[in-house]
Design a protein around this nucleic acid. Structure first.
Length: 824
DNA sequence: TGGTTCCACAT
DNA sequence: CAGTTTGGAACCA
């Protein structure tokens, strides 16, 4: 019979000497199931230049001592494959079980023969070799088995294939969050019990809300009170099994909630056998004390991991805390509850526990919503990379790129190069390459700034010039002039044969271009574009990571020469564009990496666009110079410490859009350790100056200074914030915020690493740190206006006014009473 | 300035 | 063919 299902969790089992791949998933009808399929593990052995007959005899006889069963070769097969651009012969050497692979490969390696792909996880190998994408519909042919050893029916497949790339529209998601006993923020799995376990889900259009706790009090209807922690654990298990989610989600569940549950269950002797095969939580150490947690037969998505590793890159958050991330992505925050007080309330005021239950439930809600919102993105990355979603969201970019390459390698008959040895890694880590070109601007206020940029510059260069280790210094193109890299003539890349890496990168770029078109169409028709945008985002981020990957020390397809050539080409393209613009009579005011800023100065926009078209005619097909924007005004300020008229600061400018809004880059307006006042003033001054209302800008600053001196500025606009980064007692230097933190601690407030300290500088004599006070203790007249004028206001705007000629050295050197302050 | 140390996130 | 030590910011000389 045939079975259609959607798989999301995977493993393998060795049964009677045969290796089976296990899919866990849900059928179209909603039934959770397991599907097993036989597939033998293997690795590659380089077959060129060895005595084949001798090797075959020797390898087939191999039998190495190992744990359960000796590691043996079951069969071999001679195949042709491509390694780093060269066609070669390899043996596929099949092993009797997955763990035998590295043992056998090591032995062959000892014979002095190269081996490949011996460290590919069996489950990953299976998915790649069968071209199966998790989360998408799979058709299996076979029969159900009689079984008692699993919580779900087991289907034994003879054939497994994927024809449709449809995903389940309604994944069943359950979010979980714990509150634990912690008197002073300590996290102690051994000694501190779980006080509450919260759940949130939406099933069949209905909300599922539950908090389990073991203290009796008056609670809302969603709270379930049980006798003790052991019963709580038992109930957690039952709730999960009853709800039967496909996806379990939470925030930092990998490192906190799941291992906590596991530890407490162990302590109480509660069997947490909710895995599909009655196994419990599986907690692995991953990397630097980081953990990964899972339960067999569920897909565990720790939202922190996906956001931190992949999705958060474009996110403007200071930390990846649930609070900050939810605010940014969901426009929702955590409940404002004094979590530090939970243990005290638990012991002394159970009547106040209800608000903690609400807090607990709300955290579950946020995790659920994050998961729901980002699921299309997670599935998209899954399908591009072709590996389990569990693994994909826990990967860093380099791994993601490599996984994509290895998925595509199948179609191209490409064998993956080996990972570098440790010695090789440390060598690579010492190497570095020249980066991007940045044009030093001349400080000034400019009119009609036109900005052009190269679309996806690095990926398109790699694709257009066939960059990568495979075509590097090929023997066929030594004399081909055009194959040599401008500015790096010692490198050249094959111009005769299109190589694997640039090809699959080009496909990413093209695929994204198609999707962008689809998005445009969908927008016209007012259709939902969130899925398309997830796809476009995934493709973009992956394509952009190729360059970094080529220069990443642990990469299999490492090629520093290719990375260096990418930036060399980029520098060449941007400087060529600058010269071309200048030849056309355009003044270039700035350029950075892939963008070029020029002035119209009486010329027309059509002229500028004509210039762009001319450039594009000469560019390789994949590359394109685009109009980024056309700004009525732009300002570039001087470099701090440099000659304010001559030396411009790089990466620091502001542009005025036609609609009056600003595009601000590099200015301090966004930094935390500036007062809200300085940020406001800086932004306002930029705005006025860009509108050429210089006198107004001067007056504005003047008025603000007056207000400051009159004590009229509200205190909340004067608050400075700095984060305490470590244990308070370990500070040897006493910056203002450290001093304030100590005062707070004396008053019994909790101050730890991570606490953000707010303070205001007040009048008086002595060091700044002695005049830093807790905001709530400062009265309106007390703040030190001169400090704010000198250290907050003037520094925020001086470079802007300097551009306009208010920059006499003497003026700045003197104190505020007579200095710039006098101006105003 | 470069080398070194500390810390992610959760209660 | 589950186990690895990660990477960015803050600090310090």
């Amino acid at each position: 019979m045939q079975l259609q299902f959607y798989p999301y969790d995977f493993e393998y089992k060795v049964e009677e000497g045969k290796t089976f791949f296990y899919f866990y998933g849900r059928t179209k009808e909603g039934q959770k199931i397991a599907v097993k399929h036989h597939y033998q593990p293997f690795f590659y052995v380089a077959a060129d230049g060895i005595d084949k007959k001798q090797f075959e005899e020797r390898v087939l006889k191999l039998s190495l001592k190992a744990g359960i069963e000796p590691a043996q070769v079951t069969s071999i097969e001679l195949v042709e494959r491509n390694l780093l651009g060269k066609k070669k012969y390899f043996y596929k050497v099949f092993a009797n079980y997955p763990k035998a692979v590295p043992l056998l490969a090591k032995e062959v390696q000892n014979w002095g023969i190269s081996t490949y792909e011996k460290d590919i996880l069996y489950a990953h190998r299976y998915l790649r070799d069968h071209n199966i994408t998790p989360m998408k519909e799979v058709t299996a042919t076979g029969d159900f088995l009689q079984n008692q050893w699993m919580r779900v029916p087991v289907f034994a497949a003879e054939k497994v294939e994927q024809q449709k790339m449809e995903t389940l529209p309604d994944w069943r998601i359950l979010a979980i969050d714990l509150e634990t006993y912690a008197e002073k923020r300590e996290i102690d799995f051994k000694n501190n019990p779980i006080l509450m376990a919260g759940f949130y889900g939406e099933k069949d259009g209905k909300e599922f809300r539950k908090v389990i706790t073991w203290k009796n009090a008056v609670f809302p209807e969603y709270v379930e009170v049980v006798a003790d922690e052991a019963v709580l654990l038992q109930r957690v298990k039952e709730v999960i099994l009853e709800y039967a989610p496909d996806i379990l989600t939470g925030y930092f569940t990998d490192g906190f909630d799941f291992p906590y549950l596991q530890a407490r269950a162990e302590k109480h002797g509660v069997r947490f056998d909710l895995g599909v095969d009655y196994s419990g939580f599986i907690v692995n150490q991953a990397g630097f004390g980081e953990r990964e947690s899972k339960i067999k037969g569920f897909l565990h998505l720790d939202m922190l991991k996906f956001i931190r590793n992949i999705f958060g890159k474009d996110l403007d958050v200071e930390t990846y805390s649930l609070d900050a991330v939810s605010k940014q992505l969901l426009n929702h925050q955590k409940h404002r509850v004094e979590i530090d007080q939970l243990s005290y309330v638990w012991n002394n005021h159970p009547e106040r526990l209800a608000e903690y239950c609400a807090y607990n439930l709300h955290d579950c809600f946020l995790a659920y919503k994050l998961c729901e919102k980002l699921l299309p993105d997670m599935i998209e990355f899954t399908s591009i990379v072709g590996l389990p979603t569990f693994d994909v969201i826990r990967m860093r970019f380099s791994k993601l790129v490599e996984s994509y390459i290895m998925k595509r390698a199948m179609e191209f008959g490409v064998v993956a190069p080996n990972k570098p040895e440790n010695t090789e890694i440390s060598q690579r880590m010492d190497e570095s390459i020249q980066g991007a070109f940045v044009y030093e601007p001349t400080p000034g206020l400019y009119k009609d700034v036109v900005v052009f940029d190269f679309r996806s510059l690095y990926p398109t260069i790699i694709s257009a010039h066939n960059l990568g280790p495979e075509g590097l210094k090929c023997s066929c193109c030594v004399d081909e002039n055009k194959a040599h890299v401008p500015g790096k003539e010692e490198y050249w890349f094959c111009s005769r044969e299109r190589k694997f890496l640039p090809t699959i990168l080009e496909q990413l770029i093209m695929r994204r271009a198609e999707i962008k078109k689809e998005i445009k169409e969908a927008k016209k028709k007012n259709e939902n574009i969130s899925l398309l945008e997830a796809r476009s985002y995934a493709l973009k981020i992956l394509a952009n990571s190729f360059y970094g990957y080529l220069g990443f020390y642990a990469a299999r397809w490492y090629s520093l020469e290719s990375a260096a050539s990418t930036t060399a080409y980029a520098r060449n393209y941007i400087t060529t564009t600058i010269s071309a613009a200048q030849e056309k009579g355009f003044k270039v005011v700035y350029a950075d990496t892939d963008s070029c800023f020029l002035l119209l100065e009486g010329k027309t926009m059509d002229g500028a666009l004509g210039f762009m078209a001319e450039i594009n005619e000469k560019l390789p097909e994949q590359m394109e110079l685009e109009l980024e924007g056309n700004y009525p005004r732009g300002i570039f300020v001087g470099l701090k410490g440099g000659d304010q008229k001559l030396v411009g600061a790089k990466k620091k400018y502001a542009l005025l859009r036609k609609d009056g809004s600003l595009k601000i880059t590099g200015f301090e307006t966004v930094r935390r350790n500036w007062s809200p006042l300085s940020k406001e003033v800086q932004k306002k001054v930029l705005e006025l100056v860009l509108q050429e209302k210089v006198q107004e800008a001067l007056k504005y600053v003047k008025d603000t200074i007056k207000e400051l001196r009159r004590g009229k500025v509200p205190l909340d606009r004067l608050i400075l914030k700095t984060q305490i980064t470590r244990e308070l007692s370990s500070y040897s230097s006493f910056a203002p915020h450290v001093k304030v933190a100590q005062e707070m601690k004396q008053k019994g407030e909790a101050v730890d690493a991570g606490t953000i300290i707010s303070f205001i500088i007040v009048k008086g004599k002595g060091l700044i740190r002695d005049r830093a006070k807790i905001p709530s203790e400062v009265t309106a007249v007390e703040y030190d206006a001169e400090y704010y004028v000198d250290h907050q206001l003037i520094p925020a705007v001086s470079s802007i006014f300097a551009v306009l000629g208010y920059d006499e050295e003497a003026v700045f050197k003197e104190s505020s009473q007579t200095g710039l302050g006098k101006f105003f």
